[in-house]
C-alpha cells in the first residue's frame, strides 16, 4: 500500500508538470488542475490502480474514471503519464500540433487512458452512468468514477444525469465535484449560485459525502469510505472542497488563474514552490 507521503510526493511532481506544460505552450488551464491534483493522484495510485500497460477502451473488469471537466487536461495527462500509461516525455507535446495531448482530452489520437472526449461541459456524468450501467449488465463489480467541476453543474444535462442515477439506482458510481467555488467569470456564488449543493444531491436521492480535497490522507480515506455506500441502491457523490491553484501561493483561490498561462517569471516562482520529486520530463 502506497504511503500518504509518497502520494504527496507524486502530487508535487504532478503540480510541477501542470505548471510546466501550460507554461511551455503558453496556453491551457492551471488553476483547476492544481486544485484537483491530490484527488486524481490518490485515485490512480492508491485506489483504482489500473494496469497501465494493458489499456482497453471498454474497461471491462477494472475501475474506470471519466474527467467531465476536460479543461483539467494537464492534470489528467500528467497523472496518466506518471502512472505509466505513456512516456512522461510526451507531456512536452501538450497542446502542440499533432500531439496526442490535445487541449482537451480526446480519444481520436489514441492516447492510452482516455475513454471519452470531454471539454464541452456537462456531458461526463451521463457517460459515466452509461459505463456504470454497462458494468452492471456485464456483472462487472468494478466502479466508475467521474470528476465534475462546480461551475460545470450549471449545465442542465448534469441534472438530467443526477435525476437518472438516483431514480435508476446506479449504485456503482462515485461522482466527485471539485468544489473550488471559482469559474472563469468569477466566484461561482456570483456567476450562478449553486445554493446548498449537498441538500440538492440529497433531495435527488444521492448519498453525499464531503471532504477537503487538498489533504491527501483525507482524500484517500474519504474515497475508501465512499465504497461502503456502493451497492445499496443509490449513487454516491463526494463534494470535494479544494483551492483553485493549490500549491502555488500567488495562484491560490484566484479565479483569474482558471485559464491563463503563467509568464516565465511566474513559472520560475511557481516551480520554486513545487519540489521535483520524480524528476521533470
Amino acid at each position: 500500500m502506497i504511503s500518504i507521503q509518497e502520494l504527496e510526493r507524486i502530487a508535487s511532481q504532478v503540480r510541477r508538470d501542470i505548471v510546466r506544460m501550460v507554461s511551455g505552450v503558453a496556453s491551457g488551464h492551471v488553476g483547476g488542475p492544481l486544485g484537483s491534483a491530490d484527488f486524481l493522484v490518490a485515485l490512480y495510485f492508491a485506489i483504482m490502480r489500473p494496469d497501465p500497460k494493458n489499456f482497453s477502451m471498454d474497461g471491462k473488469n477494472e475501475d474506470v474514471f471519466f474527467l467531465s471537466n476536460g479543461h483539467l487536461s494537464a492534470l489528467f495527462y500528467s497523472v496518466l503519464a506518471r502512472y505509466g500509461y505513456f512516456e512522461v516525455q510526451e507531456l512536452a507535446t501538450f497542446r502542440k500540433l499533432h500531439s496526442r495531448l490535445q487541449g482537451h482530452p480526446a480519444t481520436a489520437e489514441g492516447l492510452p487512458g482516455i475513454r471519452i472526449s470531454s471539454g464541452s461541459l456537462g456531458q461526463g456524468l451521463s457517460v459515466a452512468i452509461g459505463a456504470a450501467l454497462a458494468k452492471r449488465m456485464n456483472n462487472d463489480e468494478h466502479r466508475v468514477y467521474c470528476l465534475l467541476g462546480d461551475g460545470e453543474l450549471e449545465e442542465g444535462q448534469n441534472w438530467e444525469a443526477i435525476m437518472f442515477a438516483a431514480g435508476k439506482k446506479v449504485d456503482n458510481l462515485i461522482a466527485v465535484v471539485d468544489y473550488n467555488g471559482k469559474q472563469i467569470d468569477g466566484p461561482v456564488d456570483k456567476v450562478m449560485p449553486l445554493g446548498d449543493l449537498s441538500a440538492k444531491f440529497e433531495a435527488f436521492g444521492w448519498k453525499v459525502l464531503t471532504m477537503y480535497g487538498n489533504d491527501m490522507a483525507e482524500v484517500v480515506d474519504t474515497i475508501k469510505k465512499s465504497h461502503w455506500f456502493l451497492g445499496q441502491g443509490q449513487p454516491v457523490v463526494i463534494i470535494m472542497t479544494t483551492h483553485m491553484g493549490q500549491g502555488v501561493d500567488f495562484m491560490v483561490d484566484n479565479h483569474e488563474w482558471h485559464g491563463v498561462a503563467p509568464t516565465e517569471e511566474q513559472t520560475r516562482n511557481a516551480l520554486a514552490q513545487l519540489e521535483a520529486t520524480l524528476g521533470d520530463y
Binding site: R115, S126, G130, L133
Partner: peptide, 17 residues
C-alpha cells in the same frame, strides 16, 4: 432527457454494448 440519453449511450459502448 435526450442529452443524458446520448451521454449514457456513449458510456455504454465503454463496456462493449
Amino acid at each position: 432527457a435526450e442529452a443524458n440519453m446520448v451521454g449514457i449511450a456513449a458510456g455504454m459502448t465503454i463496456g462493449g454494448k
